[in-house]
């Protein structure tokens, strides 16, 4: 097997410029990085360093000014809006700081929603959603509404929604930001387990303690990768073979 085929996310010399002339802001400058299947990569940086921009690029919510973003070998620019929307429903899972669950839907309905939007029949989508809730350790909360759950439980539902239907790329934006340190750690354990099971994960955080759960940590400053620590990418590729 070609080792490059296990690359799930690839940013190649990505630059994103907002505005122009005197008000021009270079949110990202020629950033390149890869995330392989089975790998969790953390992106750290102060506010304004470009870490959230990086995540929106990875999810196809915004397009680079130059450079390419590929998910599972497909250049997102070639997909068109409809294609990118489909990719977001089927291959990419998001986890946000404030959970973003729909209050009028129960846990299982929230988790099933992306699959149902993608045309999966309700019964099948719910079954997959229950399995995903089981995986994140809260099968008993399936019929509960977000308002009746703790922050940690809501974030578990959000993770279930992010992984339901075999998504291979999980993008997490400060997923532990609203949680206490022990609950936050449980959420990281879940993300970590999901990556160990074969997904590729990107975790944006400003907390070093959380970034340390990743295989690699990328430091961003003013839109530039200034440093990188952790496992050598080559080792990661070998490990994902096991």
């Amino acid at each position: 097997m070609n080792p490059l085929s296990s690359t799930v996310l690839h940013l190649d010399t990505v630059t994103r410029i907002h505005g122009e002339g005197a008000t021009e802001v270079r949110a990202l400058r020629e950033v390149s990085f890869r995330v392989a299947a089975g790998e969790l990569v953390a992106v750290m940086g102060p506010s304004g360093s470009g870490k959230s921009t990086l995540l929106t690029m990875a999810g196809g919510l915004d397009a680079p000014t130059s450079g390419t973003v590929s998910v599972e070998g497909v250049d997102l620019a070639t997909l068109g809006n409809a294609g990118r929307a489909r990719m977001r429903r089927t291959s990419v899972g998001y986890v946000f700081q404030d959970f973003n669950l729909i209050p009028a839907l129960s846990a299982v309905e929230n988790v099933a929603l992306p699959m149902e939007l993608d045309g999966v029949r309700s019964r099948a989508a719910r079954a997959a959603a229950r399995a995903a809730l089981e995986e994140v350790g809260i099968p008993e909360l399936a019929d509960r509404f977000p308002d009746h759950m703790s922050g940690g439980q809501q974030q578990r539902v959000a993770i279930a929604r992010a992984v339901v239907g075999e998504r291979r790329l999980i993008l997490a934006d400060e997923p532990t930001g609203a949680l206490d340190s022990e609950t936050g750690e449980e959420i990281l354990r879940l993300l970590r387990a999901r990556c160990d099971a074969g997904a590729a994960g990107v975790l944006v955080t400003h907390e070093a303690r959380h970034a340390a759960w990743a295989d690699r940590v990328v430091f961003l400053r003013d839109g530039v990768v200034v440093d990188e620590t952790g496992a050598d990418p080559a080792d990661v590729l070998l490990e994902s073979r096991r």
Partner: peptide, 16 residues
């Protein structure tokens, strides 16, 4: 600063 941060982060990854 940068070198120290990388080294400390590597230690933090080991502990984790």
């Amino acid at each position: 600063i940068q070198q120290q941060r990388s080294a400390t982060m590597a230690a933090l990854q080991d502990y984790t």
